[in-house]
């Protein structure tokens, strides 16, 4: 068994540039003739450029970076939602992608129905979810409205429910994309307690955050990326400082 939960080796990701209305037949046809009957190659943009790092098992890893630095793309690659242009990612353990809170939530369905759908989409079985209904609703402090449709919820209630589902499933590797700090203060406290519990249980956590204090406090290692390259990798204190310096 490897001591690493995630190993990323020389990872590069390029996206094809999507122009507005890229595939209208007329445009294509005219372009095709103008270019002397050669097929036009779509321009690409490099989002991640030859990135290598590894995350040890049972540690908490923080990823920082400005908007558009490539953080979300990196997480999607780690989860296996999109495939790398080149390079490899080795995963040891079950990953649950919590890239968006409440994936599959629908306003017309009740809290309970939404928990079921969301849980199934995150890879739980129906039985597992049914066993966890109460736990999830309790944690979200929404037991009293379990059978109300989601559209009647305030946005705070909505996000609490989504976070509660996310946090109450039991993966080996937890990926949290900027979803810390939801809800009011008491809920935030409960959430960070849950994170500590994860750490104690020996889970691997990957956290994307814009909050230097948070990263410094809870991460064992961290990484700062900018324009698809690693700027800083190692101690959270240094990464947090570098991030603050970059912003100011």
């Amino acid at each position: 068994m490897s001591i690493y939960a995630i190993e990323v080796l020389h990872l590069t990701k390029r996206f094809k540039v999507v122009e507005y209305n890229p595939t209208s037949i007329k445009t294509k046809f005219v372009g095709f003739i103008k270019s002397g009957f050669k097929r036009k190659k779509r321009p690409t943009i490099t989002v991640l450029d030859d990135i290598s790092f590894s995350i040890k098992k049972s540690t908490t890893f923080g990823i920082m970076g400005r908007n558009g630095a490539g953080k979300s793309t990196l997480l999607k690659l780690i989860c296996g939602i999109i495939t790398p242009t080149s390079g490899t990612i080795i995963r040891n353990g079950k990953i649950v992608p919590l890239l968006e809170l409440g994936a599959g939530f629908h306003p017309e369905l009740t809290a309970k129905e939404n928990i079921l759908i969301n849980g199934l989409m995150l890879g739980l079985s129906k039985k597992e979810i049914e066993a966890k209904y109460d736990e999830i609703l309790d944690f979200a402090e929404l037991s009293h409205v379990a059978n109300e449709p989601l559209r009647t919820f305030s946005s705070g209630m909505y996000i609490r429910l989504a976070f509660s589902v996310a946090i109450n499933i039991n993966p080996d590797i937890v990926i949290l994309d900027e979803i810390m700090g939801v809800g009011d203060q008491s809920f935030q406290k409960k959430s960070s307690e849950k994170i500590l519990e994860f750490q104690k249980k020996g889970k691997t956590l990957i956290i994307v955050s814009h909050d230097p204090d948070l990263v410094e406090k809870i991460c064992d290692e961290a990484m700062l990326i900018e324009k698809g390259k690693i700027v800083e990798l190692g101690s959270p204190a240094i990464v947090a400082k570098a991030y603050s310096a970059m912003l100011s």
């Binding site: 989860c79 939602i81 890239l99 968006e100 994936a103 995150l122 890879g123």
Partner: peptide, 9 residues
């Protein structure tokens, strides 16, 4: 939406 973008199903 999220099903294709954000989940591995």
């Amino acid at each position: 939406g999220a099903f294709v973008n954000k989940s591995t199903l």
